[in-house]
Amino acid sequence: MIVAERKPLDEIIGFIKDCKKILIVGCNECVTVCYAGGKKEVAILASALKMAFLKEGKELEVKEVTLERQCDQEYLEEIRDIIDQYDAVVSMACGVGVQFMAEKYQSMPVYPALNTLFMGGAEEMGVWSERCQGCGQCILGQTAGICPITRCAKRLLNGPCGGSTQGHCEINKDLPCAWQLILDRLKALGRLDDYDRLISIKDWSTERSGGPRKIVREDLQQ
């Protein structure tokens, strides 16, 4: 999922300080699962903003809506009939949802309520960590299902650096060394031969450094 967290309230208040009526739009997908921008968080933000405004002697009218997805045109259409009644939209989606909202409703100010952080998973309740950087050329098949692009601070492709100490990374002693994890798992799987096979120089053009990426599937296009 895409993992995000709420921006400081001051920052959100700064966006909408001159508004009288706002629409807070949550998203039922990733940000619901990571407790950042689902229906519940929309209600809490609405309440907090109303109180912050009241404290300054102003009343803020807030409409709460949570869409199935904000990264999908058809769900964004659901607010077309009501959006013009508001001074601004505060989107509690990830950066993708905020941008799709802004693209769809050109004349409406759209503000983000979240900081979008990474693609990751829930290690346990309340703990999320990064697992994928979307490099565009997955090498998990050779690395025992552990991604050195994401989990190694140096994104090394062929074994650990000299900073790996007792299984931990030199940048943070709480951070496991990705290559130690890979080696341990390859050993457990009886696949240490994979470690001897060199991973060739990676083509980073499929990663973010190649510019914004796009997929066109003609078989699906209408």
């Binding site: 519940k40 209600a43 809490i44 309440s47 907090a48």
Partner: peptide, 11 residues
């Protein structure tokens, strides 16, 4: 008791 219940009481 959820966060929103406490917030609403203050609201």
């Amino acid at each position: 008791v959820d966060v929103i219940h406490l917030m609403e009481a203050f609201q």
